[in-house]
Amino acid sequence: MANQSQKLNEVAECLLRIEAELRRLDAWAEELPSEEALQSTQPFAVDTLDFTQWLQFIFLARMKVLVELDHPLPTVSGMAPMAEEHFRGRGADMGKLLIRELELMDRLLSGA
């Protein structure tokens, strides 16, 4: 089980780096979105949240609970392409480090 423990540690570290990068980009919100916005059933809550809000209030929040409670992690992830789309046209380097971290998280979760 050392492999699972190592994976959990890598995921936890990646979650911290994603949070740090959201804060560095000034994309970390202090105010929680409405309960209705958080209940979206659309992928990435595209109908109710900005992508960075989804990362903060849905993805990071849920993943932190899974890691802390040692619950099974998702096995499919495709956040990096969504981040690339979100940051397209916002400047060459805007979101570059965040996208890199999300690519790593995608690989960690998919086992690639």
Rank of each mutant, 00 (worst) to 15 (best):
R107V: 07
F57H: 02
I99W: 00
S34Y: 00
L8S: 14
L49H: 00
G89D: 02
A112L: 12
R24P: 05
L98C: 07
L38S: 08
E21C: 05
L97P: 12
W54Q: 10
V11W: 02
H71P: 13
I58W: 01
A112S: 12
Q4K: 15
D70L: 15
K96D: 09
I18M: 03
L22H: 00
P74V: 10
P72E: 15
Q39H: 02
R90A: 03
M105Y: 07
A29I: 10
V11P: 00
E101K: 09
I99C: 02
T75S: 13
L49D: 01
H71M: 15
Q39M: 04
K96M: 11
R23P: 05
A2M: 12
A20G: 08
E30H: 02
G78I: 11
G91T: 02
A27F: 08
A12T: 04
L22Y: 00
A92H: 06
M82I: 13
I58E: 04
A83H: 04
S5I: 14
L38G: 09
L104T: 04
E68F: 15
A45G: 04
T75N: 13
L38R: 05
M79A: 06
T41F: 14
G89R: 01
R107H: 08
A29N: 02
F87D: 08
A29Y: 04
W28E: 15
A27M: 08
L16Q: 10
E10L: 02
F59V: 10
W54P: 01
E68I: 12
A61S: 07
D47L: 13
A80C: 03
A83F: 07
A12R: 02
P72M: 15
D70R: 15
L60H: 02
A27N: 10
K96Q: 07
S40A: 13
T48Q: 03
Q56H: 01
E35C: 06
P72D: 13
T48I: 05
